[in-house]
């Protein structure tokens, strides 16, 4: 019961503080921008009399860039929105009035986590669904395997949420944010080093990327998601930046799942044991 109350409070807080509405407005603005860009692109391509096969590839590529932006936005939003929830309430003492109520502490953490996970899911669902609807409406193109891609992007959001919770049980809000986003940046850079390394057959560079993915597998999840969503043709031809010359293995996806679960587990454990 306590879990649902805490999840509800978390959701309501985001709505009351207008975070939810702002994120929604930003998401809609993003979609509107994408739609406008695609509209002019399509108009121009049609005017030039481009071959139908290419006419599909270009909006497909734009869709992938849009999805990549959505992926980054979701990760950053997830960290920013949840970064203060534990550390901030511990620092201000707000948590004391809740933690002395008859609910075990793990329910406080899991309830909050669920509230944020629900928001992240809704946000990601809106953007991924919206961008696919737009490209379909304008160019009859959608991402190749949307459910699989969505699931992998969702796991990435969950991973960052859990990591933010984990740091939030020990560090201040600012330190937590720096650590979580720092790891995202590390993974981002590592992912591209690995890609370029694979394209140029540089094993050491690939290994650097793998190490970065072990430290934070968020970018690896995106690359699996991109691989699932892009058109098989673009993937095969290696013409897209998401062609995944070095595709992360399924083991890396499983590793990311375990990573997220452990981060949440240790967040709960540390919060349950720490002084408030």
């Amino acid at each position: 019961m306590g879990i649902w109350i805490m999840a509800g409070v978390t959701f309501r807080e985001a709505a009351r503080k207008k975070i939810l509405w702002m994120a929604l407005a930003a998401g809609l603005a993003f979609l509107a921008l994408f739609g406008t860009g695609l509209h002019y692109q399509m108009k121009d391509l049609a005017a030039r009399g481009m071959k139908p096969i290419l006419l599909k590839q270009i909006p497909g590529a734009m869709l992938m860039v849009g999805l990549y932006a959505i992926d980054l936005l979701t990760v950053v939003m997830t960290v920013l929105v949840s970064v203060d929830t534990l550390s901030g309430e511990i620092a201000s003492g707000t948590i004391q009035a809740v933690a002395t109520k008859p609910l075990p502490r793990w329910q406080i953490v899991l309830g909050k986590w669920m509230g944020f996970a629900a928001m992240m899911t809704a946000y990601l669902g809106l953007l991924v669904g919206g961008i696919n609807a737009i490209t379909y409406g304008m160019a009859r193109v959608t991402a190749h395997n949307v459910p699989q891609g969505f699931a992998l992007m969702w796991l990435e959001g969950v991973l960052l949420l859990s990591v933010t919770f984990f740091f939030g049980t020990k560090y201040s809000t600012l330190t937590n944010g720096v650590l979580a986003l720092g790891l995202v940046g590390l993974a981002f850079l590592g992912g591209w080093i690995e890609q370029i390394g694979a394209a140029t057959n540089t094993t050491s560079a690939v290994n650097v990327g793998i190490v970065a993915s072990i430290l934070m597998p968020s970018e690896a999840l995106w690359r699996r998601a991109a691989n699932a969503m892009q058109s098989p043709l673009a993937g095969m031809l290696n013409i897209s930046p998401f062609s995944s010359a070095s595709l992360p293995s399924f083991t890396m996806v499983a590793y990311a799942g375990v990573y997220a679960a452990l981060a949440l587990f240790f967040a709960v454990r540390r919060f349950s044991r720490r002084d408030l």
Partner: peptide, 11 residues
């Protein structure tokens, strides 16, 4: 329990 500096969700 009334904490020393009672703070709660001010929204």
């Amino acid at each position: 329990f009334l904490p020393e500096h009672f703070r709660f969700y001010d929204w």
